[in-house]
Design a protein around this nucleic acid. Sequence first.
DNA 1: ACAAAAGTGTTCACACTACACCCATGG
DNA 2: CCATGGGTGTAGTGTGAACACTTTTGT
Lengths: 230, 230
Amino acid sequence: MSNQYYKNKSTFLVAADCIIFGFKDKELHVLLTRRPVEPMAGEWSLMGGFVAEDESLEDAAKKVLFEYTQQKGIYMEQVNAYGEVDRDTGGRVISVAFYALVRLEEFDTSLAQSFDARWINIKELPQLVFDHNKMVEDALTLLRFKVSMQPIIFKFFDEKFTLPALQDLYEAIYQRQVDKRNFRKKLSSMNILDKLDIKETESSKRGAFYHRFNKEKYKEFLASGKYFSL
Amino acid sequence: MSNQYYKNKSTFLVAADCIIFGFKDKELHVLLTRRPVEPMAGEWSLMGGFVAEDESLEDAAKKVLFEYTQQKGIYMEQVNAYGEVDRDTGGRVISVAFYALVRLEEFDTSLAQSFDARWINIKELPQLVFDHNKMVEDALTLLRFKVSMQPIIFKFFDEKFTLPALQDLYEAIYQRQVDKRNFRKKLSSMNILDKLDIKETESSKRGAFYHRFNKEKYKEFLASGKYFSL
DNA sequence: ACAAAAGTGTTCACACTACACCCATGG
DNA sequence: CCATGGGTGTAGTGTGAACACTTTTGT
């Protein structure tokens, strides 16, 4: 099928590696696994898989995501391609990294166990195989940028969330404390959330009202010429 | 050399495509060529080349850059990897795009002619082969972001430049007019430029003083806890 | 009654915007 | 002497940061 001018060129294994972020215990976590194959078998690693002939890079990443989370429609974004000659000690592999945001409320922990996978606090990241630490670093940089520009922070939650939890997540992503009055003021000035009548009462006695991201309100917000900023 | 677990996996042609930006006639330009090979021979295309077995992705992009510009030490940054199954109609090719900033003062135009290459105003971008238009779009988005955050705008110039030219470039990158007093105020507040005693007298009668980006001053600026912002 | 987290407004400093005139020079 | 682009300061407005107390409720 390949054109004649494409002959005699080197070909490469191409992998899709996923930096799967989740929010848990007021901290940002990454899903890691013990690498199942040689070389470096047993070492901490990102979730990954090789790209197949009839798959796009995104398809390959989605396949990996679904395999380990069983969630569909996960928010995903490409980070970068990594292509140092010796990056993978098992052979020449070009790897394309994607980060993904998963909703931990609906995460099946038994799944994780069958893959020897664990949610690791990003503040306690171990040494990972190959250049995976660099991938996580790059993914975090991109995540921070995107969160500040687009309403993707809500994708960590399954529809509804409390403002204290949202703030905890924000603080976990940026690793810095923010004033809750200022945080709430910024959110309410955008008018993109619905306050529900229900309270979440597990993490406090008084209880915090649930809120919901309202897509319609967000469209109006954009239409008024403003830009999202957190 | 490849590990046994890597066998029986599909391999792919991998290309490095370069979005080469330059500043000319008060407008941002991209270096394009007439694609020399089938399919789509003769159509407008970015500069690109296949990655070789012993090259990193960056090496491959640098090779392409050097081939078409003969400049070394060009500022270069990865944009994204493109891997749709049918993106290249000549075969399955994964392409990694890089943007680069070249100094047009020292560009050898005879070179460009021998490659059938031309500097095209980004406001008049023609239809390009495959997904190259998307690549340029993504590169521009990234360039704009980076320029606003890091002092890379100076890499369009060969050491010295005038403030009017710098502003013209800024306006060309963002496609919007800015007030020259505000623009200069922001620059001078950072104190990262040296004003030279020489004037550039070609584009005006009075002449505009040359300035130079001062790396040492910039380090001090960063050390004082401030962040670059344009 | 008290501990623990939720919720709420105001003030101040700084950064961004808008805006208009004089200067130097070549022709 | 005039046309062309280079160079300069100020006032007003909006945005981000700092800051403390009251409310609710389970124990």
